[in-house]
Every structure is written in C-alpha cells, then in structure tokens.
Design a binder for these strands. Structure first.
Lengths: 211, 211
DNA sequence: GTCTATAGCGGGATAGAC
DNA sequence: GTCTATCCCGCTATAGAC
C-alpha cells in the first residue's frame, strides 16, 4: 500500500531466463529428466536461484508444461473457431500445428507419458479455455456436414479428428526412428515434413489435386 | 564338456519372472522411471535378485526393450514380406500392429524418447534383421507400383509408409489425451480403436467401400 | 537477489552370511 | 540362489552469509 521498493519489478530477467531455458530443455530437446543443475548450467545461473524463484523443480516443470500447453491449445482453438471455409481452416491448422511443434516437438510425447503417470493432473494442465467445449462440438458438426457434402470420407467425426492429428503429430514424435530407418539427415527430414503438409490434406479430403 | 551340475538349468523361474515384470511395468504401464524396488515389489522378490541376474537396472532395461522391439519388428517384417496381394498385406499389418501395441502400448513412445536421448544406442536396439533392408526396399517398390495402378494416391512412398504408421500408432500414443478430451471410458476407447481398423484402410486406399 | 555450505534422502550397487 | 546390511553417489532443497 505504501511506497513499494523499486526492486519489486516482477519477472526479473533471471526468472524469465530460467523459465525459458527449462522450456527449451524439457520440451524442445526432450530431456524430461534434466536436473536442476542441468537447467542452471544451461541458463548460466546458480542452481539455488531456481529454487529461489520457483521453490522446487516440480513447480517449475509443471509451470513450463502448463504454459506451453495452454498457448498451444489457444492457437489451435483460435484456428478451429475462425469463420472460414472448412478446407481453408484445416490448411491453417496444419500450418499452425507445424509451427508450434517445430518449436516444441516433445510437447505431445510428454503429455502422453505424463498424463498416464499422473492422470489426476489433467485438470491442472488442461485448464478450461473459454468456450472450448462448444467450439469442439461445433467443429465436429462441421466435419459431419462436410461428409454429407461428400468432400471427406464418411466416418465418425471423432475419427476424422484423430486422423488429422495423427497425420500431423506422428512424424514429429517418431522423428528419431525415421531419421535412422530411412537414413535421412535432419534437413532432409525437415524437407519431408514440409512436403507432407500437402499430402496430409490430400489424405483427408477426397479427390483433390495432390503432390 | 564334463558332467555339468544339475542346478545349471538356465533361465530360472525367478529370472524370467523379473524380466516379465519389468517388461510389463516399463512397456505396458509406461512407467519408464520405475525403480529397481518398484520392479522387485511387483515381482514379489528381493531387490538384490535383480542385480544378481541382470547386474544393473540399465542392463535389464535395455534387455527388455531390445527383446520387445526385436519381436515387434520381426512380426512386422514377416507380414510385409508375405506373398500376398498388397491390400491384403496392409490389412494383416494393421491387425498385427494392433495386437502388439495393445500388449505394449508404450513401445513406440519409449523408442522415440530414448533414441533422442541416446542416439548412439540405435544399433544396439535396432539389431539388423536378416534381409531387412531388401524387404523394406521391396515394400516401397510395391507401394510405387500400387500408385501407378491407381489404387492409392500419388505421393512419395516414404510418406505412404509414415501415413500408415501414423494412423495406426498415434491413437495408442495419445490415448490418455483423447480419453479425457472426448470423455470416453477405457472400453469405449478400445471400441473406437477397433472401428478405426476399417477407417485406416479407407484412408489409405482410394475410393473403397468404407464405414 | 545471488552466492556457499550443508543437510537429507532416495536409489543403485556390492559384500558377505545363510 | 536368496537374504541383510551397508556403502556411495547424485540430486533436491534450505539455511545463512554477503
């Protein structure tokens, strides 16, 4: 209430630096077992600062996870909720999804493993987005309507949804396997991923020009 | 060479029990951080026996992993190498893949995470299967030939391969997410998975009766 | 806000008795 | 082959000086 000290400027550089570094190590590099020392070293700060700002490794881990997931979901929902023709919407979705997963390729893998281990944390991680449920229902109705128009193959709308995300996400999850299996370089695999964008649309929609 | 003692009967019950338990915990339940104590408790044996038979946790982990992966790959290769019409082969593949992943749903997730962390272990885990390389090349040629016949959409054969495995594997990897997202019970999700078998074929092949 | 020093414990591994 | 006792280390976390 009275005059607050000047150094109360929140979100100090250090705090943000630690959080960004943790995010990179956990979700970009996929090192979910990284220790507090690993993170501190990578950020170039003393290990105790991590506890000073976040109290425990667990709190930091969950925070980073939750923030990334929430941002990701918000972008997806935004795209799916846009007032655009169905096919255009899916094209945008693929682009946005790619953009996010190139930055955070292990996000999906982590969710899958972590939620299996701690199902009670679902509500903590998947915070309710305003209008989220309605937006999903609306999207599934759109899928249904497209099938009636004959632009996509008849199936349960949920299966269309799963197919869509399977085709997008799996190549990121399984990247290390395919790199070796087909003896590809990183950049060759990235090129393959880029080409897949068109391919995914060709798979989802009936009878279209493809590549 | 001379008369060996009777108690040299290898693969004692205990050894097998520990290995089976570890396999279940690591690959079926997805608890890749399970401690030696966790495994010993689940098997109902003393923790030191684990070291007695396998020397270290790491050795046990790699052994279990490698055995499961090799068995899995052998089954897949067997199916892909069979002398059968292409579509029949893919149908068989989906069935075999499902059978294996229902038993070991976390196999794929583990490979992805573990190989990323220890890329040098690729050769240890992915042992060379006799004729493996030729079989893969032959399969990709078959894919090419099917595209020329017009039964499947034109694309790079590698992309057909990735699409195939994406559609099969992803719903297993992402199971915990979809259970919650669509508020499904375990058995409802299993039913959905079963229905997807037909759906996957419809996605992969052009213009077929679907469901 | 940042450091050093230290407590504390959980987990892997081995020695040695039975 | 199976157990108990013990060692040892890495990692989290905190107290307290600066």
């Amino acid at each position: 209430m009275s005059n607050t000290p000047v150094n109360t400027v929140k979100d100090s550089k250090t705090e943000q630096l630690i959080k960004d570094t943790a995010k990179r190590i956990f979700l970009t590099e996929g090192k979910m077992l990284a220790t507090t020392q690993d993170i501190a070293d990578a950020a170039g700060v003393n290990r105790t600062l991590l506890h000073y700002y976040f109290r425990s490794r667990d709190v930091l881990f969950n925070l980073v996870f939750k923030e990334a997931l929430t941002k990701f979901r918000e972008r997806i929902h935004e795209v799916l909720g846009a007032e655009l023709p169905f096919k255009q919407k899916i094209e945008n979705l693929v682009s946005v999804f790619y953009e996010e997963l190139i930055a955070l390729p292990y996000l999906e893998t982590f969710i899958a493993l972590h939620l299996n281990q701690h199902p009670e944390k679902y509500e903590e991680f998947f915070i309710v987005l305003p209008g989220g449920k309605e937006r999903m229902k609306k999207f599934l109705r759109e899928v249904q309507s497209e099938m009636e128009k004959g632009t996509i193959t008849e199936m349960k709308p949920i299966n269309f949804f799963i197919n869509l995300f399977a085709l997008m996400a799996y190549p990121f999850v399984a990247r290390p396997i395919y790199l070796k299996l087909f003896e590809l370089t990183d950049s060759a695999y990235n090129k393959l991923l880029a080409e897949r964008k068109k391919n995914i649309l060709a798979m989802l929609f009936d009878k279209e020009a493809h590549f």
